[in-house]
Write a protein that binds this DNA or RNA. Structure first.
Lengths: 195, 195
DNA sequence: GAACAGAGGTTAACAGTGTTAAGTAAACTT
DNA sequence: AAGTTTACTTAACACTGTTAACCTCTGTTC
């Protein structure tokens, strides 16, 4: 196996097990049986390595979402199962999920550009469902793509509150998730308010 | 002025100007004219200092929210202006906002307990509006407190996507915010679906 | 075959980090 | 006056990401 791939695997292993704080270049290198500087032959710097990990993590999340997609179901049902899956996945793979939103902007000024086509495709996945829902008039949106991002943002918010332990101790996590999904989905479906 | 207070002020100054990454103990100490170790006489460690900053930041955010509260308006309108204010505040004070959600869980295992009454009171602020909306049957919620957390989470998600520069370059930020607020608010108002 | 170029690694070092242990000097208490 | 406490200091430990310089093996070209 190439060292590059081994670095990625080991990094991810450390990341998932011990969190980002413990993921040092020397530790990664040590576990690969090489010196720390060798990593710099395969990655520009730590952020660059992190970027590769982010891509992987998003790809995995996207995969998890795709697996629960069921064209037989209604768009609303699909949206709900996607929301549920997103949250479950994030809570079951907290360390990996955190990577996705961890790298701070100042450390990576020119984020998208060529890379991150996978990332976009993950959003397109949601946008597609929403677009279909819009066509069959079960969903109430203006721009499907923007709504996809909105949905994603809302889900991330819910996950973030839980992972960062910001949830009130009085509130049962399950109940919070259920109510959050309710609110989020309701925000997307057609409102048939009688004149 | 007490050194403790000066440390807090200087920390915040550095944090807002240069971001968390540049906020080192030695730098704070240097700018206070003392040695780095002095900080440990007033704060248990860096996380502890950060916690104090988080409290302050949340208090400021809460203050900004309280200022736009207007009992004359409908609950739905108030909810909307709160949402708008939350997002604006976060985007206008990005470094300060980031503090609120930055400290990672593993670094602070026992978060709430005695402290953070202010934090809770910020949520209660939202919960109050929601509770009133529920009473006058303009809002559709089960638990007001949980819905308050849900609203907060959703708003944080929207902000987070923008601050972390995860928004698609094709999407105008303003339009994203507008559509997000629409979806979020809609998720809370009563749905009068005709049987 | 000899000379060269580059790939893929090395060690040593720099400048920085959070944090602790031990020491000091002034102020308060008895 | 002696002792204790308070608020600080310096020195050091064990790390961090990153760079410069060096080495060694491989493949290519004359």
């Amino acid at each position: 196996m190439s060292l590059r791939k081994e670095i990625l695997e080991v990094s991810k292993e450390i990341l998932i097990k011990d969190g980002f704080g413990k993921m040092s270049m020397r530790k990664i290198a040590g576990r690969c049986g090489v010196s720390a500087t060798s990593i710099y032959l395969h990655f520009k710097n730590k952020d660059d390595l992190l970027l590769a990990l982010i891509e992987e993590s998003i790809e995995n999340l996207k995969q998890a979402l795709m697996e629960v997609l069921d064209p037989a179901k209604s768009m609303i049902d699909q949206l709900e199962v996607l929301a549920r899956t997103y949250i479950s996945y994030a809570l079951e793979h907290p360390q990996e999920y955190e990577v996705i939103y961890m790298v701070r902007p100042e450390e990576m000024p020119k984020y998208p550009k060529e890379k991150f086509r996978d990332v976009r495709s993950a959003y397109e996945l949601l946008a597609d469902i929403i677009r279909k829902g819009k066509r069959e008039e079960s969903l109430d949106v203006e721009s499907s793509l923007i709504s996809a991002y909105t949905l994603w943002a809302q889900l991330h918010g819910v996950v973030s509150v839980i992972l960062n332990k910001r949830l009130d101790t009085r509130i049962p996590q399950d109940q919070f998730i259920e109510q959050a999904i309710d609110h989020i989905i309701k925000g997307f479906v057609i409102q048939k308010t009688p004149a």
